[in-house]
């Protein structure tokens, strides 16, 4: 029964965000008719790919409760890309760069998982600490310089499109969301994650291996960060030590807008994907209308607060 209600709530969030998105596009294209074309779609999806992967990791971590949050995710993106490129520069075959990115991401995520589940450090603090370490190391190891040398075959994938859909988006981001959605809705793991987030004590009492699931989720979040790092390499053609800058806060914004409750146990990945698309579309639209970029920062802030207040008002009523 609870599951049923939760699903309906999720679909509602999804529907609202989709409606908002369409409204934004129509509104923007009315103001700037030239905006409405396939190139714009490619553009929006391209800039959504990295954020959507990172937001997915953030969402899983928050959903699983225990005051879960992953502030280090941006640092994970930077450091996995930089370490993979550094390994390549010191002789690792280039073909190993993609798996290396993902492995390093998983490893960095596993460190967070260990800190949270084994040493019982609160996620906010543990990942604040690793944010400093990961993003700081990415800068310090390279002295800030970008690292070039990404081969053409990676660029062909990173910059390629099929029917104006960017390849990284349809080959990585979209499948990741679909898998996550299926796991959350239809498998025991998904029910465990919601149960943990909803009420950790009863989850433990009914025998859910809370710590093991949580460790795995932090590891997966790191792995998604590694994937995002890989995409940044293939797309931009070079490794940049500050590529993940601000992603921790942007992914948090996307998760919250997407209807994920900060205390965990409520929300879905569909809403988060919709929220990412909405954020990037809004940004694109504002740029297209040549609105001063500083308004983006302000509008996203206001939108976040407005949506949460709206959410509060309605849940109170229910």
């Amino acid at each position: 029964m609870i599951a049923l209600r939760r699903m309906r709530g999720q679909n509602l969030v999804l529907a609202i965000l989709a409606a908002l998105w369409v409204a934004t596009i129509i509104g923007l294209s009315a103001l700037s008719p030239a905006m409405f074309n396939a190139g714009t779609l490619t553009n929006i999806l391209q800039f959504s790919t990295i954020l959507s992967l990172v937001a997915l990791g953030q969402t899983l971590v928050i959903l699983s409760g225990g005051a879960g949050i992953d502030l280090s995710i941006g640092g994970t993106v930077s450091l996995s890309a930089m370490l993979a490129m550094l390994a390549f520069k010191t002789g690792m075959p280039i073909a190993l760069v993609p798996p290396a990115c993902i492995l390093i991401g998983l490893l960095l995520g596993a460190i967070n998982g260990l800190l949270v589940t084994r040493l019982r450090i609160l996620p906010l603090i543990a990942t604040l600490g690793t944010l400093f370490i990961y993003s700081g190391s990415a800068l310090a190891l390279t002295g800030g310089a970008a690292m070039s040398g990404v081969p053409a075959w990676m660029l062909a994938w990173g910059r390629g499109t099929i029917a104006s859909l960017p390849l990284p988006f349809i080959t990585i981001a979209l499948p990741a969301f679909i898998v996550a959605g299926i796991v959350l809705l239809w498998t025991a793991w998904g029910r465990w994650i919601y149960a943990m987030g909803f009420n950790e004590r009863s989850a433990r009492l009914v025998g859910i291996p809370v710590d093991r699931v949580r460790f795995l989720i932090y590891t997966i979040s790191g792995g998604l960060g590694g994937l995002a790092g890989l995409i940044s390499l293939a797309w931009l053609g070079s490794g940049r030590p500050n590529i993940g800058q601000n992603l921790e806060l942007e992914s948090l914004t996307a998760a919250m807008l997407g209807g994920v409750a900060i205390v965990g146990g409520r929300g879905g990945v569909g809403g988060v994907l919709a929220a990412v698309l909405l954020l990037v579309t809004l940004k694109t639209g504002l740029l297209r209308l040549n609105v001063n970029t500083v308004w983006q920062v302000g509008i996203v802030g206001i939108l976040l607060i407005a949506v949460l207040i709206a959410d509060r008002l309605t849940t109170h009523r229910r």
Partner: peptide, 18 residues
């Protein structure tokens, strides 16, 4: 607004920056 402090202040950070 009964918003969790971390989210509310994240939103306000954007507003104050602007």
């Amino acid at each position: 607004g009964r918003i969790p402090a971390i989210v509310a202040t994240l939103g306000l950070l954007g507003v104050y920056k602007a």
